[in-house]
């Protein structure tokens, strides 16, 4: 398949339309010197990846990214920035020297290269058909509460540990005597 063939496919244009802004926004998240701007770029990056999931037919994952990440996590970030009174202007703390940036960038590119190479090497142009029920949110809900109910229940204890941990670390001083 040549690039010309690739470009005649309309889905590939939609992919480029989504992927390029996502990529640019992701780079801006880590390179922006202003925390609030970085968070707003993260919204674009997450929105783009949610759209890519929808394109792949992963309806449930796509909307989860929108609801949980864009809806909840970003708000948490912004509230966190607000209550910690982080500077809203350019921050010196966020500007690392090039000696710190270069290895990080190199490692990211290297990791991307290895993963991309492995995927292409293993699957190449092979088309893997998606079973019809895999894309339906209802089916996913059913399987969470049948086949996967045990991990689902155990996750509640992860949340319990996180909740107790959060209370312990955030409570301000040695609490008064328990009644």
């Amino acid at each position: 398949m040549t690039i010309g063939d690739w470009l005649t496919e309309s889905a590939n244009w939609a992919f480029l339309f989504l992927a390029i802004p996502t990529f640019v926004a992701s780079v801006m998240v880590v390179s922006s010197r202003n925390v609030v701007r970085a968070v707003l770029y993260l919204v674009i990056a997450l929105g783009g990846s949610a759209a890519l999931f929808l394109m792949l037919g992963a309806e449930f994952v796509g909307w989860t990214v929108v609801l949980v990440y864009i809806g909840a996590v970003i708000i948490l970030f912004l509230i966190g920035i607000m209550i910690t009174r982080a500077p809203l202007t350019k921050s010196v703390d966020l500007s690392h020297p090039i000696s710190a940036k270069a290895p990080a960038a190199l490692l990211s590119v290297l990791l991307f290269g290895v993963v991309a190479w492995a995927v292409v090497e293993s699957f190449g142009l092979e088309t893997i058909p998606l079973p019809e029920e895999a894309t339906r949110t209802g089916e996913i809900g059913l399987s969470i509460f049948t086949s996967w109910v045990i991990p689902f229940e155990v996750v509640s204890f992860v949340l319990l540990a996180a909740l107790i941990g959060g209370i312990v670390l955030a409570r301000k001083d040695e609490p008064a005597e328990v009644p």
Binding site: V154, V155, F157, A161, A162, G165, V168, L169
Partner: peptide, 12 residues
């Protein structure tokens, strides 16, 4: 999930 339960508790 077991790994995460243990890890989160141990971080705290």
């Amino acid at each position: 999930i077991g790994l995460e339960t243990a890890s989160i508790a141990l971080y705290v």
